[in-house]
């Protein structure tokens, strides 16, 4: 009996923890939004973050897109060949990249590269009293540290998602034409025929939300750091894991609303 009670107690504590985290996260995001209106945006700081998230992530998201597109093309070929619709490989790759894989993979790769960096950087500042120093100097840490990162992610995620999708489609084209020896013109023509503008901009809307999610969670976790380097490591891991889960969850919700 005690074992069962203990089991339910643990479930209850977990649910309370999730609700508490979600509530804290929403309050945190709200404080960040208020900071945007309370102070003028520091453009130098914003451009630094945009460069870090965008230009700095170009190669990693480019490679991710390239290999994903190539694999998609190859895998689609095995299935399409059976039913004789290899001409549909182009739209399959393009739809998968623009609607789904472009935004999601970009978000996950940028979470791994930049989200971890945001959490550890702010976490280190927190434990070395640099965040306290900001506050004592009458500088709102949310405004100074979080807002530029959240806005930069919001702007750069869709742009990087376009990069991932384009390079992915290019990768699919290369496999289609040069490795599988099929007609490249068909690949491109079918994309034009089947891809709608809404497929592209709905994918970009998703990317905007993913940018907000990853930067909000990563900076929020950074501020939760305590207890030295181990604490920074812990919040960094939590930032990456939580951001990834929330991105995948949001992906499902947004897909069911947008498409």
């Amino acid at each position: 009996m005690d074992f069962i009670l203990h089991y339910f107690e643990r479930i209850g504590l977990f649910v309370l923890y999730i609700i508490n985290e979600l509530g804290s996260l929403i309050i945190y995001l709200w404080n960040c939004i208020l900071s945007i209106f309370r102070y003028s945006v520091n453009f130098s700081n914003l451009f630094d973050q945009m460069s870090f998230i965008g230009i700095g992530s170009f190669y990693i998201v480019g490679l991710t897109g390239l290999f994903t597109g190539m694999v998609l093309s190859l895998q689609s070929y095995y299935a399409a060949r059976i039913v004789g619709v290899t001409y549909m490989i182009g739209p399959t790759v393009a739809l998968a990249m623009t609607r789904e894989l472009g935004p999601v993979l970009t978000a996950l790769m940028i979470t791994a590269r930049c989200g971890s960096s945001m959490a550890s950087e702010i976490g280190t500042m927190k434990i070395s009293e640099q965040v306290d120093a900001l506050e004592v100097m009458a500088v709102d840490p949310f405004y100074f540290l979080s807002v530029p990162r959240i806005i930069a992610s919001m702007i750069m995620l869709p742009l990087m998602s376009i990069v991932t999708s384009l390079i992915g489609i290019f990768g699919g084209y290369v496999v289609y034409k040069f490795f599988l020896g099929l007609n490249g013109t068909v690949f491109v023509d079918m994309i034009y025929k089947y891809i709608k503008l809404s497929d592209i901009y709905n994918g970009l809307i998703k990317a905007v939300f993913f940018g907000i999610i990853l930067a909000t969670i990563s900076t929020f976790k950074g501020f939760e750091a305590s207890g030295g380097s181990k604490g920074v490591g812990r919040v960094t891991t939590q930032a990456v894991v939580l951001s990834s889960i929330y991105i995948l969850f949001a992906d499902y919700i947004l897909t069911s609303i947008l498409f």
Binding site: T124, M125, S128, E129, Q130, D132, A133, V136
Partner: peptide, 12 residues
């Protein structure tokens, strides 16, 4: 106010 923190708390 000005404050000097124990380890300086300079922005690294």
């Amino acid at each position: 106010f000005g404050m000097v923190f124990q380890d300086g708390a300079l922005f690294d």
